[in-house]
Design a protein around this nucleic acid. Structure first.
Length: 276
DNA sequence: ATCCTATCCTGGCTGC
DNA sequence: TGCAGCCAGGATAGGA
């Protein structure tokens, strides 16, 4: 599932192919993908606009739009679980799950594809309406051990669901939370306000290390869904220590990895290395 | 304030 | 082999 490392990989790969391009046309196959805007309203908003900066915020992909050199809203995408983005030559076959196609002025097409119809591609006049509630970027300077320690203590939440809460920290999903907690030696059911400063700082370090290594590997591809915009799978799934490893031995201590459900999410951990 | 459930969707897997 | 039913997961809404 696309989490921060996958979205970052996508942003990096499509950036050089999108920045500076003008949108010459659009085709919408599934209106709900637009998140409330009608097809004509969406077309009016994006056709003729130029894609300026392409960037990522949490799990959102953002392309700032310009008209006559002036900022004019943004395209904001969220892939949810099965969304994909491709930039391909005109005529490329996107398969049966194409939701939106944008024709670019260099002859390429931007394809927004999704099997399950949860993904969204918004036109936002004010992108902050979508991005404004997000918590800090875990790879940014502001995500420090002290900040995390204080923020965890401010809440009284079960740790794992809190880390999945995008208003708390932006970009973490089920996989990287499980992997980060394992690496930090912290139980997913730990109470957020009971972590010592030292353990919070360790968690901060392991979150950043996990995300950084996953970005280096171009994300994780353990099912048919996530592929880079070039169609290649990432390889970080080979590094998973707990996610999807139920019953297999912990690489550190040999204890079988356990799977429980926390906040409706499959949760993988080592009961010996991650004590309560 | 926090937690829980249902919803949105479909392909793929399990079990009969 | 066929098929019904369940599961996965990101985000959100509504209720406890």
């Amino acid at each position: 599932m696309p989490e921060l490392p996958e979205v970052e990989t996508i942003a990096r790969l499509i950036r050089p192919r999108l920045e500076g391009r003008r949108i010459d046309g659009c085709e919408v196959r599934w209106t709900r993908t637009l998140g409330g805007l009608s097809k004509p309203a969406f077309a009016r908003a994006v056709v003729g606009a130029r894609l300026a900066r392409v960037w990522r915020r949490g799990k959102f992909l953002v392309a700032d739009l310009e008209r006559s050199g002036r900022p004019e809203g943004a395209l904001v995408g969220h892939l949810r679980m099965t969304g994909r983005v491709h930039v391909e030559p005109k005529g490329w076959d996107p398969g049966p799950y194409l939701k939106v196609r944008l024709a670019l002025d260099d002859g390429a097409d931007l394809f927004f594809i999704d099997v399950r119809k949860f993904a969204r591609l918004w036109y936002a006049a004010e992108p902050d309406d979508l991005l404004g509630t997000l918590g800090p970027e875990p790879l940014s300077e502001s995500f420090t051990g002290d900040w995390l320690s204080a923020a965890l203590r401010d809440r009284r939440r079960t740790l794992k669901p809190l880390l999945l809460d995008q208003t708390f920290v932006a970009g973490l999903g089920n996989i990287y939370v499980d992997e980060s907690l394992y690496r930090a030696g912290i139980h997913p059911l730990a109470r957020s306000d009971r972590l010592t400063r030292e353990r919070a700082a360790r968690l901060r370090d392991e979150i950043r290390a996990t995300l950084g290594e996953a970005i280096e590997r171009e994300g994780s591809s353990f099912d048919v869904f996530y592929r880079t915009p070039e169609g290649n799978p990432g390889s970080y799934q080979d590094e998973f220590k707990v996610y999807g490893r139920e019953g297999k031995p912990c690489v550190r201590c040999g204890e079988p990895i356990r799977r429980i459900v926390v906040g409706q999410r499959g949760t993988h951990f080592c009961a010996r290395c991650q004590r309560r």
